[in-house]
């Protein structure tokens, strides 16, 4: 019994952390059709922001939930203004530019912070379920992910900003002729995506070491998940994270982490073979 509870918690945690890592990328890709290859480095910046602020005496929760998304959001805004906005509609060029950006950010972070692993200990302690110790921070990650998804849904479905954003996503010319400025919408979207990545980095900082090269460990999985999810930002992220995260965690439990990764990739390949536009390209069409 205790094993089942622990297993369910672990699957939920894996799905939640995958969704969290994907959210920023999904927003930018879903809204703007921009593939941001520097996504992993945004996560890394969020991690460093959290660790540095926490070491400077800022309460950890404020560092994670406020400072990390704020700092990375500002960085994202500047990057959009300086680099990305010149390349809209040119997918290959944006990929190249953001890949270069990713190398630049890794290099800068190595110069500034060194290649030492930095980190903070996870707060909240642990509880015992039967024979197993479970980190309460894992439960916190599940909760915060649900909160982020609910908040995103609310913004997209129930605010003017969300309405305009969805409109611009479906038909930028029409939105533009109705008086919404696509340039501004893109700028806000990219900033929001960067802030979400920063938040993910902040939340993951206490669980995994923060190193300049950490982005590489996340970016591939995030991409596969977002592509598998398809065009709808929220529904796509949730369903793809649920399927891929669930399958990979269960195989990791049953066999080992290498086969877990293989299972994730295999599932993604099979899904994309039959659903080339992603899960939400076929099911839940028109959902957010």
């Amino acid at each position: 019994m205790d094993y089942i509870i622990v297993l369910i918690l672990q699957v939920l945690y894996s799905v939640a952390s995958l969704a969290l890592v994907c959210a920023g990328l999904a927003v930018v890709f879903g809204m703007m059709r921009v593939i941001n290859l520097a996504h992993g480095e945004f996560i890394m910046l969020g991690g460093f922001t959290t660790v540095l602020s926490a070491n400077a005496g800022v309460p950890l929760m404020i560092a994670i939930l406020v400072i990390a998304p704020l700092a990375v959001g500002i960085a994202g805004y500047l990057i959009e203004r300086l680099v990305v906005r010149h390349l809209y509609g040119r997918m290959v060029d944006t990929m190249l530019a953001t890949w270069g950006l990713s190398l630049l950010l890794v290099g800068l972070a190595t110069m500034v912070f060194g290649n030492q692993v930095a980190g903070v200990a996870a707060p909240f302690g642990s509880v015992t379920i039967g024979a197993y110790g479970v980190s309460l921070y894992d439960v916190f990650v599940i909760g915060i992910t649900i909160a982020v998804l609910v908040a995103s849904y609310f913004v997209l479905a129930h605010t003017n900003l969300g309405l305009i954003a969805r409109g611009a996503m479906q038909n930028p010319e029409m939105a533009s002729s109705l008086g919404a400025s696509p340039a501004r919408i893109y700028s806000v979207t990219f900033t929001a995506g960067a802030a979400l990545s920063g938040l993910a980095g902040g939340i993951l900082a206490p669980l995994s070491g923060v190193v300049p090269t950490m982005g590489a460990a996340f970016v591939a999985k995030a991409f596969i998940t977002v592509i598998t999810g398809g065009a709808s930002i929220l529904t796509g992220t949730i369903t793809a994270s649920g399927i891929l995260g669930g399958i990979s965690t269960l195989t990791t439990f049953a066999i080992n982490p290498v086969i877990g990764d293989v299972a994730l990739l295999l599932t993604a390949i099979i899904l994309l073979r039959f659903l080339p536009y992603g899960i939400t390209g076929r099911f839940f069409r028109g959902a957010n």
Binding site: L7, Q10, S14, S17, Y132, L207, A216, A217, F253, P257
Partner: peptide
């Protein structure tokens, strides 16, 4: 490149 050890810990 593995950073999530949750399953192994269980």
């Amino acid at each position: 490149d593995v950073t999530d050890f949750g399953a192994t810990i269980k």
